[in-house]
Design a protein around this nucleic acid. Structure first.
Length: 798
DNA sequence: AGCACGCCGACT
DNA sequence: GTCGGCGTGCTC
């Protein structure tokens, strides 16, 4: 038997299957999708089996496949097929796509070990101790010595492929005696053996519940391992190590919530979706529902329907709204049958959740973008919540769009796909208009409440509270009012840090990152200037680094500064700040939200990560500190993003009995995105913005491809960019618009200069082929230090 | 991508 | 002579 293997070497020339002979003893283990180790040139690499055959066209002698890594092939045949289809239309190597489908720990680690090759060498001091990893040797003298050993055949190199995926083991304690025996022991124990009595009591009362795990006993009974050790020693318990899954939902109780009855609109939407689930028909629905209209309830009912039909369900949510609140809701409804995949999990937890799915131990998968590749089979429903979110598009190497992958999988499984949003992306809404998707609308709020009142505060004509120009008197008074009523407030400012840039008032100098073409941000928590692109930090200057003047100012307000201002203006108010800086640590996200939910704070101040999904009944005021931060960036979809964000965050107010109010501070109160966000009129925004797009020849009227060219030398990037443009101009239609090349909005990141070309087209059947050619020539161009990235339907074109 | 091979100039 | 730097071509 012969295996077709995609090897773990991401390069143009190796981006195809290589064939290997399967030794007979491995034949039974090998399937399509298996992860294997194969010889490749002088070394060994990891690879994935994408095909099996009896014969081979290969002229040379096939090498033997070496190892099958996992008992169960990590990739299903479906995923192998999907990877092939994806490779055709996103400009990435197949191996990169396959890797993106799997948990990170399944990527191989490679080591090059130096081993003695003669009895003489074996005795050398050099080879005593740990084997020498040649990739870690930097000392020139040592390199010399190693060369000599290799030349004389006194040493050899061994290539090792390491599997990072480790399975977690945990101690489990089982009972060895009859219940009555434990009672006897209990009665003979000394009075002061409190913990041992506790343990025995639990054994007697919950005899059937054993074996129990160490963590369970330690946490639930508040025991320490020493108590368990002595219990084992005394022969009460038997200990063994068993493989366990790390449970990311360990902190959540699954209490069954009251079943919620749907209103007419919800029920109608559910019926349409359920019909396709029952008929096993692939169909894409766009569920457009205003905030608070109960989209989530429709999803959960539809998932129940899929499960009732004996099928499984996949639900994608934006990373940012994978809040403990949301997870709790799904967990409460579906219990242990839910697997959760998102970035807050440790790599080990992700691997364990993934394996539960792969083994068919879960029926519902909830996760962020990459969960669209969950190895779930028999899918009866796919849901994408907040479908307009740009995070569904991966911005780095396999630049896939989870929405398109979901459509592929819905066709494969003959099941419906539900795209839900209060503010659908223009592209999706346009497709619904053309009946490519079926539109379902929820126009009523589930709790019959009116949408919250939205007020715009024109920052051009307003009195500011305090010494800074960030918080209007109106907003501060409104906050004061809520604090007095013991209600809560959410404030959003879409900019983290303390100040945005340092400006010298003498000479106009702005402190910039040495590696990137952006200003450094002041962060008070770390007392440093930080670059938000490359992570560079340096001390806060006391004087202008250019002219030594002390007249320097830190301008552009971030969340840290607003927090300081609020503390001054509202002494005693309890403020929680939530942004990338305060949520970096594992679990901090949940801690902040739990604290706010328990009313341990009055104000939740955060970046856009607080705009979505949060549901706090006691929040009656939502304030947007500056609605303009995203409005004037040069992206064609800046208005859409601003409208979305404002609408989303407004939906956080007045979710329960109490009435909600929203205050939006802006310097552009007349801008249509802000005006229409005030009335939360998505349909009017859609109509207006479609005209703007039509006039500008932008999506959804045109397709787009962005070609980025990067180099350490600006000239080289520019020259290559012009060369590519000429190449395309000669081969594309007249109606196709090729913009650029121009320097990217941030022309330098991490010391690389970026140039870009945007192609806008309606019909270019050859474009895919041409761009693959451009990409191939990039391999050549690499020699001159050039990198070329091609992004099909980019979310951001700056 | 990594790696070996081979050519060529530099240096003990 | 031998060492090491870099360009070229291959990996089933």
């Amino acid at each position: 038997m012969i295996a077709q293997v995609i090897v773990d070497v991401a390069a143009r020339q190796t981006d195809r299957a290589f064939e290997y002979h399967i030794p007979s003893d491995l034949e039974k283990d090998i399937k399509i999708g298996s992860r294997v180790v194969v010889p490749f040139g002088p070394r060994k690499v990891q690879g994935f089996v994408v095909g099996l055959s009896e014969t081979s066209e290969f002229k040379g002698k096939l090498k033997d496949l070496l190892v099958v890594v996992d008992e169960m092939p990590p990739l299903t045949p479906e995923l192998v097929k999907l990877s092939a289809d994806l490779a055709k239309n996103i400009y990435s190597y197949r191996i990169k796509i396959l890797q993106a489908m799997l948990p990170w720990v399944m990527r191989a680690g490679y080591r090059k070990l130096l081993l003695p090759n003669s009895s003489q060498a074996q005795k050398m001091q050099f080879f005593k101790g740990d084997p020498i990893d040649l990739n870690k040797v930097t000392d020139p003298d040592q390199i010399k010595q190693i060369r000599k050993l290799l030349r004389n055949d006194d040493a050899k190199i061994e290539y090792v492929v390491e599997n990072k995926a480790k399975k977690k083991k945990e101690n489990q304690y089982d009972l060895v005696l009859a219940p009555s025996e434990y009672e006897k022991i209990y009665n003979t124990l000394r009075q002061n053996a409190v913990k041992q009595k506790q343990l025995l009591m639990d054994i007697v009362e919950n005899y059937k519940a054993y074996p129990k795990s160490q963590s369970n006993l330690e946490n639930k009974l508040d025991l320490t391992s020493s108590v368990l050790n002595s219990a084992v020693k005394k022969g009460w318990l038997k200990r063994k190590a068993v493989e366990v899954y790390r449970d990311p939902l360990a902190g959540f109780d699954d209490h069954k919530p009251a079943k919620i009855t749907l209103n007419d609109e919800q029920q109608n939407a559910l019926d349409q979706i359920a019909q396709k689930i029952d008929q096993q028909k692939s169909k894409t629905f766009l569920l457009e529902g205003i905030t608070g209209s109960g989209k989530t309830e429709v999803y959960l009912h539809a998932i129940s329907e899929a499960l009732a039909q004996g099928r499984n369900a996949l639900m994608l949510v934006p990373e940012i709204s994978l809040t403990p609140q949301m997870v709790r809701q799904v967990r409460a409804r579906f219990g242990q049958e839910v697997a959760v995949l998102h970035s807050a999990l440790s790599e080990g937890e992700k691997y364990d959740e993934w394996r539960r799915i792969r083994r068919g131990e879960t029926k519902v998968v909830v996760g962020a973008r990459s969960a669209v590749f969950a190895p779930l089979d028999n899918i009866g429903l796919i849901v994408i919540d907040e479908e307009h979110e740009s995070s569904y598009k991966q911005e780095t190497d396999p630049r896939y769009n989870a929405r398109n992958v979901a459509i592929w999988r819905s066709k494969y499984h003959h099941c419906p796909l539900v795209l839900g949003s209060a503010t659908p992306s223009l592209g999706s809404r346009a497709r619904a208009q053309k009946h490519v998707y079926q539109l379902l609308r929820l126009t009523k709020r589930a709790n019959h409440k009116e949408l919250p009142q939205v007020n715009l505060i024109d920052l051009k004509h307003v009195q500011f509270a305090g010494g800074q120009f960030d918080l209007s008197v109106n907003l501060v008074n409104a906050i004061k009012d809520r604090l007095e009523k013991k209600e809560q407030v959410i404030l959003m400012l879409n900019r983290r840090g303390f100040a945005n840039f340092m400006l010298c008032r003498e000479c106009g100098f702005v402190l910039k990152c040495p590696n990137c073409d952006v200003s450094l941000n002041l962060h008070k928590d770390t007392n440093s200037m930080q670059c938000h692109y490359c992570g560079h930090t340096e001390p806060i200057p006391q004087r202008c680094p250019n002219c030594q003047s002390s007249q320097i100012r830190f301008l552009g307000t971030g969340t840290q500064k607003v927090q300081e201002e609020l503390e001054e203006l509202l002494p005693g108010a309890r403020i929680l700040r939530m942004d990338v800086d305060t949520t970096r640590r594992k679990g901090s996200y949940k801690r902040i939200l739990d604290a706010f939910g328990n009313h341990e704070a009055d104000i939740l101040l955060g970046t856009q990560m607080i705009a979505k999904g949060l549901d706090f009944p006691n929040v009656t005021l939502v304030g947007v500190i500056n609605a303009d931060t995203g409005l004037w960036i040069s992206d064609y979809n800046a208005s859409e993003k601003t409208f979305e964000l404002l609408t989303q965050v407004a939906g956080r107010a007045g979710r329960a009995e109490k009435e909600g109010e929203v205050m939006i501070q802006t310097y552009n109160p007349d801008h249509y995105a802000i005006q229409l966000a005030k009335t939360q009129d998505y349909e009017r925004f859609y109509a207006y913005e479609m005209n703007v797009r039509h006039a500008g020849n932008y999506p959804p009227y045109f397709f787009t491809v962005l070609i980025s060219i990067a180099s350490k030398k600006e000239q080289n990037a520019a020259r290559e960019a012009f060369r590519i443009k000429r190449f395309l101009m000669q081969r594309l239609h007249q109606e196709t618009i090729i913009l650029g090349p121009s320097p990217s909005a941030i022309s330098r990141v991490k010391n690389q200069y970026y140039y870009q070309i945007l192609v806008k087209y309606k019909k270019e059947p050859n474009l895919n082929e041409l761009l693959h050619h451009v990409q191939d020539s990039a391999q050549e161009a690499k020699k001159y230090g050039l990198s070329i990235y091609i992004d099909n339907e980019p979310e951001r074109i700056m």
